[in-house]
Write a protein that binds this DNA or RNA. Structure first.
Lengths: 215, 215
DNA sequence: CCGCATCCGGGGCGATACTG
DNA sequence: CAGTATCGCCCCGGATGCGG
């Protein structure tokens, strides 16, 4: 992107982050942790391959992303956020929080949805009220590939593979799953609207924020 | 901008805010309050006139900006942020905070600087330790048009005109002025590097944050 | 397969000129 | 003062190819 050439920290930040797709690439890396080029493409439906490559190069040059060679069993390139890149977490949270009212009407016809994106909301909203107990594993199903998140204390991690046992499964339309994870929708209300909750309700409630007064 | 068409609150936010210049337009409106088209152009060196007009239309349609007719003495159009637009303040602060390390080396040759942009940092960093006392007025000079900011309690406002008396004047290179206002640079150290402080040091110290340990 | 590079059409952007 | 109008250019989107 052409620089704004303004001696202003906002303009300088946008010189690095303001190009199309850049913030969404950071989103994927925050959700997934170190991952392959192909995984990034999967999480960024619509991006052109050359753009992804160029953005990654730009972010690497800016010290936001680092690339490393995975050890011999896999022997592939991994992309990860640097500490400087991790500092973008609060920026992304604020943007995502601001964007939440734009989700109210449900997805548009052409909108795609990936369960992994719900992890962003989960990381923002879920807090473990009993952080000393073993982690809780939640499976999310919303029509696409289900994902499993594991959460303990303040940490919410995406679990690749989706195999293994889970404590509770949320299954329903994206707005319902997102509403519950973000705390915007009470669990019972979501169930009344069609969300299916299988497994331990208790494990779930351990993580959900206090239902802030809607009034 | 083309929509990302992703049912994700970050992507939805970027559908509104992600186009070039949009965030900087919000910056100007946050700093200046309601202002005219011409004032916005002044604060956005480099923007094409048609782009500014189109962005304002888009932001208006998105409920971020409102336009109003000023009463007859002036009888001009004013642009202001809606409450929804004001909610972008925290987003801009996080972005600007992330961008601060990119300012360390001082301005590049082609960089332009407007004293008003320093107000963003002032709004982020300055806190009045004696909010019950009358406001403090600070003049900023850094080579261009000087500006006056008035600060009391948590409020930091840009004062148009620059006329009237001030409590203290900061005069020096942009990195020095910004360093002091952001709290990154101790006042004495800035003075040793060439910052000129005329007037009441005490009024200034009333507002500056505690010099966080640099270690 | 994985991680790109190349090619090409279309549209967003930049700069300037012009107008009610 | 508050915008349109116009015109290149380059970024972006989509497809395909290709070396490791």
């Amino acid at each position: 992107m052409r620089s704004y050439s303004q001696y202003c920290s906002l303009a300088k930040a946008l010189d690095v982050l303001g190009e199309r797709w850049t913030m969404l690439i950071v989103r994927e890396l925050l959700l997934r942790g170190p991952c392959r080029y192909t995984d990034l493409r999967e999480g960024l439906p619509g991006i052109a391959s050359n753009l992804l490559a160029e953005r990654l190069r730009t972010l690497e040059a800016a010290g936001v992303v680092a690339r490393e060679q995975a050890p011999p069993p896999v022997a592939t390139t991994l992309f990860r956020l640097t500490p400087r890149g991790e500092e973008l977490r609060t920026v992304l949270y604020e943007l995502a929080r601001w964007g939440m009212p734009l989700m109210e009407g449900g997805p548009a016809h052409e909108d795609v949805f990936r369960e992994e994106w719900a992890v962003l909301l989960a990381q923002m909203s879920l807090r473990d009220s009993q952080p000393d107990r073993p982690p809780v594993r939640i499976q999310l199903r919303a029509g696409g590939d289900p994902v499993v998140i594991e959460t303990a204390g303040a940490s919410v991690r995406l679990h690749r593979g989706g195999a293994g046992s889970v404590d509770v499964t949320l299954d329903g339309a994206p707005p319902l799953v997102l509403g519950v994870l973000s705390g915007r929708l009470a669990l019972e209300q979501a169930e009344r609207r069609g969300l299916r909750v299988e497994g331990s309700h208790k494990a779930l409630r351990r993580l959900l924020p206090e239902p802030a007064g809607l009034a």
